[in-house]
Amino acid sequence: MNTKLNAIETINERTAEQIVSDEFLIARAKILELAATLDRIERARGDVEDTRHMQLLTHGMQILCDDEVDKAKRVQLLMSREYDPRWKDSMSIAKKES
């Protein structure tokens, strides 16, 4: 089954300019939070550059700045464990007769 997804054509009523205007302060605040978090890490003792979490955050921030679309989905996938389509075999889960 492949059910076609129908987003309503007129569903996004706002223009890009309106969205930037409406959400500028919210986005600005989020960037500042992130900047302050990075400053906090920088000021603290220890080196986290090579840790998995820090590498994920760095890669995530690169996604925000690149020219590709689907940024939220790509950040989600970056932060996700890999899916193996053969997982049933590796877990010895019996397949249902269908």
Binding site: S80, R81, Y83, P85, W87, K88
Partner: peptide, 14 residues
């Protein structure tokens, strides 16, 4: 939740 969501959702759908 979180890092387990994508893998787990695909397994559930399977």
């Amino acid at each position: 939740h979180l890092e387990d969501k994508y893998q787990g959702t695909r397994m559930i759908l399977d």
